[in-house]
């Protein structure tokens, strides 16, 4: 559920101005890890711009997501350095393990999202993957699977 009061407070932070729409969308995404559909109607009324226009902004930037993302967002670096050091097999193995593809990037249980990025700026550690904010250097397909196991184990650990 989207807390519209929270959305409103974000809008207010940016003075309720339509020209701040990118910043407002970023702040909302920060909160929900994606852009829930309900907020488009709300923002359209609140900022006085059409829903189609907000959708236009949201689909233009790669960074915005209209789909809910998993608890663990795995970014596989496919920059030049990582690519030549075999990042694609890592990506393929991760997708295989999780039943994901280029189109379907998030597991149904909303635990994992797998996406590619063009460079994480850690070329010396290539190939690199990032899980949320943690960088995992010198990755291999087997290492990636192990990492998935660990993350899953962590999920049940608190019991």
């Amino acid at each position: 559920m989207v807390d519209m009061e929270r959305v409103e407070s974000i809008v207010e932070e940016y003075g309720g101005e339509s020209r701040q729409v990118i910043a407002i969308l970023q702040a909302i995404q920060e909160e929900y890890h994606y852009l829930p559909r309900e907020i488009f109607t709300y923002l359209s009324k609140r900022l006085g711009i059409s829903e189609a226009q907000i959708y236009s902004v949201a689909t233009f930037y790669e960074n915005f997501s209209l789909e809910p993302k998993g608890k663990y967002v795995i970014k596989v670096c496919d920059g030049t350095a990582c690519h030549v050091r075999k990042s694609i097999p890592i990506l393929q193995r991760l997708r295989e393990q999780l039943g994901l593809s280029e189109q379907k990037i998030t597991t149904d249980d909303l635990l994992f999202t797998v996406e590619t990025v063009s460079c994480l700026g850690a070329c010396g550690l290539a190939p690199v993957i990032m899980v949320n904010d943690v960088v995992h250097p010198a990755m291999t397909p087997d290492g990636a699977v192990e990492l998935l196991e660990e993350l899953r184990a962590g999920e049940v650990a608190p019991l």
Binding site: I49, S50, E51, A52, Q53, Y55, S56, T59, F60
Partner: peptide, 8 residues
């Protein structure tokens, strides 16, 4: 405002 550009 029914339509706009989408994607890029």
């Amino acid at each position: 405002g029914a339509i706009d550009f989408a994607h890029r």
